[in-house]
């Protein structure tokens, strides 16, 4: 009985990986299509509650409401205090705080 060539096994495996990638692309496009109704409901909620931020990090007020924070908030606890909440290190300060003029 002849054994499979190594190249056949490898090309088959790469082909299978490409097929999985194609399947994931199909999954992504169908999930994006299905999310439209949910997004519309979330948009209506944002309008009704006048929300300005995502609830990503709840440990500090300046990471909970990133767009409402100012530069001094992370250092407000004591003079020369360093920013100490872990998530404060993950994100950049809002861009509009470092700009001199508005668009």
């Amino acid at each position: 009985m002849s054994t499979l060539r190594r190249s056949t096994v490898y090309l088959g495996m790469v082909g299978a990986l490409f097929l999985i990638c194609a399947g994931l692309l199909l999954h992504a496009s169908s999930a994006v299509r299905n999310a439209r109704a949910t997004l519309a409901r979330k948009g209506a909620l944002v309008r009704r509650l006048s929300l300005t931020d995502l609830c990503l990090f709840t440990e500090a007020n300046y990471t909970r409401h990133l767009s409402m924070a100012d530069l001094s908030t992370p250092f407000q606890d004591a003079p020369v205090s360093l920013e100490h909440f872990p998530t404060g290190a993950l994100v950049e300060p809002p861009t509009h705080l470092s700009r001199k003029t508005r668009d």
Binding site: L25, A31, V32, L56, F57, T58, P86, T87, L90
Partner: peptide, 18 residues
């Protein structure tokens, strides 16, 4: 990493925007 010291954290699934 994302939770930091938060005890209240949203459980959510992200839409796969690629």
């Amino acid at each position: 990493v994302l939770k930091g010291w938060s005890t209240l954290y949203p459980a959510f699934r992200l839409t796969p925007y690629l």
